[in-house]
């Protein structure tokens, strides 16, 4: 078989007695390359088809609830009442809780992840580095149910002094305020902390990866100018890793949005009422996934409503993850980082 193929010959009839003949030479891929291409392309398409199928399934299943309440009303309503006729269900209350839990989780997890990643890449001997990476990987391997149980049985009580302190000192900020005599267990704050710990490994590993790719020449330049290690990190490592930090955080956000077991255990799963102020430190709140998990096996209309809520969550997490990978891929450090 010839190695090259000649394309684009001069058109018939075109007389070119003198002058150069333009040839476009393209490489003909070998059999191995072609097979490999087919396999990678095939698995890519399979994943895409699966995603589309999930979307279609959700859409069909949720059509009953969506047509009954109307898409716009379903999206904006905070109530979820199937005991009245006609039922009044909407996803907004769940969505608010979902986003709040995820945001608390990110606020907790991102700084911790950055410092953990820096400890691994910049402040460790080879031995400590391996040890730390192992610990973080171990954290990633803990089933979410255990996180949820741990949060429910242990952290709920232990976190109350912090919640109390926050509401006493920062209570003037609306979301940190609490109503009189409100219980401080089962709050969005606690659920957010647990979710934050669950997404810490993924954010840490993305940031660690980009930090470790910082060009050594730039790091040496910063140190050779008389900088401290921390000064070098601030002027070289963090700017270089910025895209990875943002992308990793969004990836963590995507995970946090869909987190189920922990929030199903921790939150009372009463849809958040927007309009009243939101109190993240006190008992209350629900998230899409937690709400769905707590109501499995309901009547067909409720299930259809839950499917509609799931569809909304599906779209939001998909969008978050896509934006995350674009951010990482676009950044200077992100080239070559696997998400």
């Amino acid at each position: 078989m010839p190695d090259t193929a000649v394309a684009d010959p001069p058109a018939p009839g075109e007389s070119r007695s003198t002058g150069p003949t333009r040839r476009v030479v393209t490489e003909v891929p070998s059999v191995v390359d072609r097979r490999f291409n087919a396999i990678t392309l095939g698995s890519g398409i399979a994943v895409l088809v699966l995603l589309v199928l999930v979307g279609i399934f959700l859409l069909i299943q949720s059509s009953e609830a969506l047509s009954e309440s109307g898409i716009l009303r379903f999206l904006t309503r905070t109530e979820w009442r199937t005991d009245v006729q006609p039922p009044r269900i909407g996803v907004m209350g769940l969505l608010a809780g979902t986003v709040l839990v995820a945001l608390v989780g990110i606020v907790v997890a991102v700084p911790l992840s950055i410092f953990t990643a820096l400890a691994i890449t910049e402040y460790s001997t080879a031995r400590r580095r391996r040890w730390l990476i192992g610990v973080v990987d171990l954290l990633a391997a803990v089933p979410s149910l255990l996180f949820g149980l741990w949060g429910f049985l242990y952290l709920s009580d232990k976190i109350i002094p912090i919640s109390t302190w926050l509401t006493q000192n920062l209570g003037f900020i609306p979301i940190f305020s609490t109503q009189e005599n409100a219980s401080l267990t089962g709050s969005i704050f606690i659920a957010g902390i647990v979710v934050g710990l669950m997404v810490l490994p993924i954010i840490t590993s993305v940031t660690r990866e980009v930090f470790s790719q910082t060009p050594p020449g730039e790091k040496e330049a910063a140190l050779a100018l008389g900088g401290t290690r921390w000064g070098m990190i601030r002027s070289v490592v963090l700017p270089y890793g910025r895209g990875g930090i943002i992308g990793g955080s969004m990836l963590g956000l995507g995970r946090a949005l869909g987190e189920t077991i922990a929030v199903a255990l921790l939150l009372p799963q009463v849809p958040q009422r927007i309009g009243d102020s939101i109190h993240i430190l006190q008992n209350g709140g629900a998230t899409v996934s937690g709400f769905i998990a707590n109501r499995a096996g309901a009547d067909s209309f409720t299930v259809s409503g839950l499917m509609a809520a799931g569809l909304v969550l599906f779209i939001i997490t998909l969008a978050t993850n896509m934006v995350a990978s674009v951010v990482v891929a676009r950044s200077r450090s992100g080239v070559g980082v696997e998400l």
Partner: peptide, 17 residues
């Protein structure tokens, strides 16, 4: 010490950002 004794490297390494 490094502040008093500067260094220029083989490969140019300006801070690109």
């Amino acid at each position: 010490v490094r502040m008093r004794i500067g260094m220029v490297f083989q490969k140019p390494n300006p801070f690109p950002a």
